[in-house]
Design a protein around this nucleic acid. Sequence first.
DNA 1: CTGTTAGCGCTTTCAG
DNA 2: CTGAAAGCGCTAACAG
Lengths: 344, 344
Amino acid sequence: MRKRASIKDVAREAGVSVTTTSYVLNRKSNVRISDETARKVREAANKLNYVPRMSARTMINQKSQLIGAIIPQTGSSHRLMFDNPFYGEFLSAVECEVRERGYHLLVSGTGPNQDYSSIAQMRDLDGIIILGTYPCEYLDELKRTGIPVVLVDAYIRDHYFHTVSIDDRHGGYLATNYLIEKGHRKIAFIAEKLRGYGIHEQRFLGYRDALAEAGIDFDERSVYAADVSYYSSFQLAQVFKEKSQGETGVFVAADIMALGFINGLRAQGWSIPEDLSVVGFDDVFLASMCLPEITTVHQDIAEKGRQAADIVISAVENGAKRDIILPLYIVERDSVRDITVREE
Amino acid sequence: MRKRASIKDVAREAGVSVTTTSYVLNRKSNVRISDETARKVREAANKLNYVPRMSARTMINQKSQLIGAIIPQTGSSHRLMFDNPFYGEFLSAVECEVRERGYHLLVSGTGPNQDYSSIAQMRDLDGIIILGTYPCEYLDELKRTGIPVVLVDAYIRDHYFHTVSIDDRHGGYLATNYLIEKGHRKIAFIAEKLRGYGIHEQRFLGYRDALAEAGIDFDERSVYAADVSYYSSFQLAQVFKEKSQGETGVFVAADIMALGFINGLRAQGWSIPEDLSVVGFDDVFLASMCLPEITTVHQDIAEKGRQAADIVISAVENGAKRDIILPLYIVERDSVRDITVREE
DNA sequence: CTGTTAGCGCTTTCAG
DNA sequence: CTGAAAGCGCTAACAG
C-alpha cells in the first residue's frame, strides 16, 4: 500500500495544474475545460486511485457533509437505548436518507451533562438530529453554534429548532377512547414517571381528555409508572395486580412497556385480553411479534427518521425552516376485549 | 453567534504565540510551560469558547479519531437491518466503547457494490468495524487502504484482518445436542439459505456434527430456509407444517427467525413446545420477551461490540493484532419439551 | 520556556 | 481555457 495520492499527484500525472484538476474533479459549471484535458485528468485520478480528503475540503468551505445524530442512552450502562426497537427503526431510516443525499452519519449517545456542542463544532457538523427531550441549557449551547438542529419528539418551542413530532396528546386520546368505545370505564395509565414535559406527559393529557369527554372521573390511583423498558414494566405487573382498582383496561404509553407489562401479568397467571385489555403506543415491530399482538397507536417511525434527515439537510442546503407533525392512528389487534357485547 | 475562534484568536487573547497555545491545549509532556502562561491560555480559550477543528488536525497527523462501522442493510429498502435487534445491541456497545476511548463513530449501511474504501479514505477513518460477511474483492479494496479492520462474524482467513467471532459450529452442535439430550431424534434445521460460507453454514455443520455423534441419519428434507427476518420465518411455518417429516424438534439458527417461526406455528394452531421443541441462537433480548421464552444458544452481543471496538482502537494506537472468539452456552428456557420423561 | 515558520490537501480569487 | 499563489486552522520542527 503506497502513499495516498493528493490532488497534486493527479495534476502532475495528467500534466496539468492543480487548479484545472480541481475544476475537472468538481465539475464546476462556471468554468469550461476542454474535453481532452478533462479526460486526461479523470484518467490520472482513476489510475492513482485518487480520493479527495474531506478534512481539507471542510477547512475551506466549512462544510463537512456530516450529520450528527444523538440517541438517548440508558442511565446505567451509558449504552444507547437500542433495547427499545424504536431507536433502531428510527436510525435506519435516518442513515438511509442521509446517505442517499450524499452525507454521512455520526452517531452518538450523550448524557445531558456532556457537551455535544463541542463535538458539533469539533467535527464541523452540518446538521444535527436530536431524538428525545433534553434540558434547555443543553439546547441553548447548540443554538449558539448556529448549526441547524432538528428536534424529534421534544416539546420545546423555540423558533431556532426544526421539529418533527406527532400529536402525542391526540394519540393518548385515541388510545384511551378506543378502550372506552370497547366498553371500558375503569382505565389505568402506565408510562414513564411524569416530569412535567415530554411525550409521556402529553400522552397522559390525552388520556385525561378522553376520560373527561366520556364523563369518567379521573382516579389518581390508576396511574402507574415504570422505566421505558421491558423489565421494569414486567415487574410493574406485580404491583399492578396488588393495587389494582378493578380496571378492565389500561393504556400503556409505549409498546416496549406494554409488552413487558403483558408478559408480567401473564407470568402472574392473568390472561390478556380476558383479564385486562391493553393498548400500547408506537407500533414498534415488536407489537406484532408477540401473542397476543398488541393493539396500539401507530406512528410511522421510519417516516419520522426520513423526515428528520430531510429537514436538516434542507436546512443546511437552503436554510428552509420546517416543523412537521406526523399522523397517528389506532391499529386494532388482539390485546383488547370488547366488553360491550358481553353476552349473546 | 459570532465567528468561531481559532487558535490564533486564543493566542492573541492570551498574549502568547500560537505554538505556546497549541502546546498548552494539547498538554504536551515534552515541553514545559510556566503555570502562569498555561493559565492565561486556558482562560483565553475558555473565554472565546475555543474548540479545535478536527479537520485541521486530521490534515496534519493523519488521524481523524473516527471509527467507521458497517451494518448490513436489508436488500429491498436499503435500510439498516435494525429490525433484527442483534444489530442494535451490537452497535450500542460499539458506540459506547468508542466514545469512552475518545473516538467518534460513523455508521453506514452499505451494499457490496458500494465502495466503502472511498468513504474510509475520504474521511481518513482510523479504523473500521465490519459486521457480517462481504465478498472478498470488497475486503481487498479495504485492505489496500492500510486502515485497520475488524471483521465481526465473518469466516475469512486473512492475516490482515482482525476478527471477533464465536464458534458458530460449536454453537450449532450445542443447540442440536441439547435437543438430542431431551430425547429428540427427528430434528429439523432452519436458517438462511446456505451459501457455502458464513455463520449459518457453520451452525449447520454443528447441527450435523451432533446428529452424527448421536448416530442419527441426516435427512435433507428436514432442512428449511427463510430470510433472517421475523416475517419470512413466520411464513415458513406454513410450509413446515405441510412438509414436516414428523420432527419433534427444530434448531433455528437465529432468534429472530425462531420467534417468527414459533408464532407462525401458533397461528396455525400448534403449541410450543408441546407440538414442537425449538432452540434458537443469539439470545437476543427478544428471546426472553416472548412466551414461551426461547431456549437458545447464548452469545454476549454487547461484549462482541465492546471487543470489536477495543480491537480496532488498539490496532490504531499500537498496531496490535488480535483475533477473539467469544464463548457460547445454552440458556434453558421454555421452548423445548423433555420427551425422555414422557410418562410418569 | 516561547516564538517564527513551513506545510498538511484542497479550493478559489486573480492573472495570463 | 489554464496556472500561480494565497490561505483555511492547526501542529511541529527549529531557532532563540
